[in-house]
Each structure stands twice: as structure tokens, then as C-alpha cells.
Write a protein that binds this DNA or RNA. Structure first.
Length: 317
DNA sequence: TAGACGTGGTG
DNA sequence: TCACCAAGTCT
């Protein structure tokens, strides 16, 4: 079976779409149908995908899902939207409340940025999550992926949505490699654009479907090719599923790092209802230089507010 | 552009 | 057990 060509034309090219199994390989629409039909039968019932989930709910989910598994997001997401059903509701509270409600999701700067995005939405967009990609991109915490995801999932627009799942699916199916490059490349964007269905609703469906395929089937550790709807067209399979070559992929160290210390410090402040004395923070880490550096970093990031008398709390502004 | 930035589940 | 991994963004 012919693998998906890296230079696939958009499906508008009727000459190519007409002949299934033509010389250029599988046509776009065939590929789209295979993945989207699979999605129709296997998509998880996630709250941010339900009809009652508006743009704000989608945006909240996208922030929380950055580098964070679905299962850990679910309970925090539910509480968050119950407490702050609109951007204005969140914007009306201090940023520290967002950090507190973030709980142990990790990367708490996301909470600060989501709060900042809510403020910006109130100030610049009349309290409505913007639908324009450039306006989304201008919000704090919204990068290339999140802007495309919100525009696509919340507003049904046509955007190349390149998250780690989609990048892995394309790396395998199109490029014949086990893993994508460390950082998103122009070549990956080109592939994603080329494979994007022409009409908006189908493109939005395709974006969600390819993400789900990567999350459930074309997984990083042990891909379930037997259950894959496009296994017959996968370049990586066709090549015999070669192992990743080249330099080892960047690992994440954590134990003993500033990140760990920051996490411990912030955990104390999240649980506290009143300003916390320095001494209480000193207990979480015994190495004073690293501890001070971590605390300074949290203050510099706006995650912690220092008060007079050696007291600290989550930020009121 | 490489590295910082949390946390916890898992093979 | 312990690296690896999870819907990235920012500098």
C-alpha cells in the first residue's frame, strides 16, 4: 500500500481526488474519511467537546491540557467552570485565586496566564473569547497551538492544529519516522496544511480526529497499529516501523531542581488562607541558596506576592 | 533556539 | 525501579 505522500495536495485538487488509488497515492478525502469515521466511533466523551461547551470552556480546557493528561484535568476543569463560567467571572477575582484553584495541575504560570487572558478578553473583547486567530494569539498563554485549537474547536474554523499527538501521527504516517522533531518545523506545518480538508467543518473535525488518533492509537510508547484506521497508508509501518534514530530526545529532569522547590513552596501558599511567614516556607527545602532562588523566581513570575514582615501570599494583583 | 517551567501515572 | 511521557508557551 502506498504511503501518504509528504507533498499531498489539498483535497480541492479534483483530479487527484477522483481516482482512488491513483498514481499519487491515497486521496485526501479517503484519508479524511478514514480518520473522521474512526473518530465518530471512538472519540472520548469529554466535557469540552459537548454541545454545551462554549468558547470559554474550550479555552479553559486547552490551557489545562497543555502538557497535562486528560484524566488529571477533568476534575479541576469542572470546578473551574462551575466557579468561573465566563471570562469576566475569572477576571473579577485576584490572580492568586486562579493559582489556588489550579491545584496540582502543574506549570502554575498557566493559571496566571489564563487569568491574564480573561482580563484581556474583558478589556479588549467585551468579555467574549475572540474568534480571530491573531487576536487569540495575542492573549497571554496562547501560542500557535492553542490559538488554532480554540479557533477550530470552539468556532469551527479551518486551521492546522499541530499538537504533540498530531505531530506524531504525521511523523509516522507521512514521514515514516517514529517521532517528530523536538520543535515544530516549517516542514511539519506544510504537511499539516496540505492535509487539511477544504471546508471548515470537516477541517475542524479532522483536527480533533487526528489529535484523538494520536492520543488513543498512535501513542508514543506502544502504538496500537492493529486498531489504526490508516495503518495501510502509514509510511512508518510500510518501512517496517524503524526505531527512532539520531540524538536521544530531550529528557526532563525534576528531582532536586528549582522546579521541584518552586512546586513545594507554592503548595504551601496554595493551602494557606492567610499570609505565610518565611519560616513556614523554609521548612520545605533545606538548601537555603536554592530555596531563596526558587522563591525569588516565583515572585518575579508574579506567582507569589511578598509582604512586609517576611510574609508571603498568592498574588492579589 | 535551547532551556525553564510541575506533577503524577506508567511500562 | 525509574526514565519516559502528557492537547505548550515564553524568553
Amino acid at each position: 500500500m502506498t504511503a501518504i505522500p509528504a507533498d499531498s495536495k489539498p483535497s480541492a485538487d479534483s483530479a487527484e481526488t477522483a481516482g482512488a488509488g491513483g498514481p499519487a497515492g491515497p486521496s485526501g478525502p479517503v484519508l479524511h474519511s478514514a480518520v473522521i469515521d474512526w473518530f465518530d466511533g471512538h472519540a472520548r466523551d469529554l466535557p469540552w467537546r459537548r454541545p454545551d461547551a462554549g468558547p470559554w470552556a474550550v479555552m479553559v480546557s486547552e490551557f489545562m491540557l497543555q502538557q497535562t493528561p486528560v484524566n488529571r484535568v477533568l476534575p479541576v476543569y469542572e470546578q473551574w467552570l462551575a466557579r468561573w463560567p465566563s471570562p469576566a467571572d475569572l477576571a473579577a477575582e485576584p490572580p492568586g485565586e486562579a493559582v489556588r484553584a489550579w491545584g496540582r495541575l502543574g506549570y502554575p504560570r498557566r493559571a496566571l496566564r489564563l487569568h491574564g487572558a480573561a482580563v484581556a478578553i474583558r478589556e479588549r473583547h467585551g468579555g467574549r473569547v475572540p474568534s480571530d486567530h491573531a487576536e487569540l494569539l495575542a492573549l497571554p498563554g496562547v501560542g500557535e497551538y492553542t490559538a488554532a485549537a480554540v479557533a477550530s474547536f470552539a468556532y469551527g474554523q479551518r486551521h492546522a492544529v499541530l499538537d504533540t499527538n498530531v505531530r506524531r501521527v504525521f511523523a509516522r504516517a507521512v514521514s515514516g519516522r517514529e517521532f517528530p522533531p523536538d520543535a515544530t518545523t516549517a516542514a511539519e506545518r506544510k504537511v499539516a496544511r496540505a492535509l487539511l480538508p477544504d471546508d471548515e467543518p470537516t477541517a475542524a473535525r479532522w483536527a480533533a480526529a487526528t489529535m484523538e488518533l494520536g492520543a488513543l492509537v498512535c501513542t508514543a510508547r506502544t502504538p496500537h497499529c492493529v486498531r489504526c484506521p490508516i495503518t495501510a497508508q502509514c509510511a512508518w509501518r510500510a518501512a517496517g516501523s524503524p526505531a527512532h534514530d539520531g540524538p536521544p530526545r530531550r529528557g526532563q529532569t525534576y528531582a532536586g531542581t528549582d522546579r521541584q522547590v518552586r512546586g513545594k513552596l507554592l503548595a504551601v501558599l496554595r493551602e494557606a488562607v492567610a499570609p505565610v511567614p518565611q519560616a513556614a516556607l523554609d521548612r520545605v527545602w533545606d538548601e537555603p541558596v536554592q530555596r531563596a532562588r526558587a522563591l525569588d523566581g516565583l515572585v518575579a513570575d508574579g506567582l507569589v506576592e511578598p509582604l512586609d514582615g517576611g510574609l508571603y501570599r498568592l498574588p492579589l494583583s
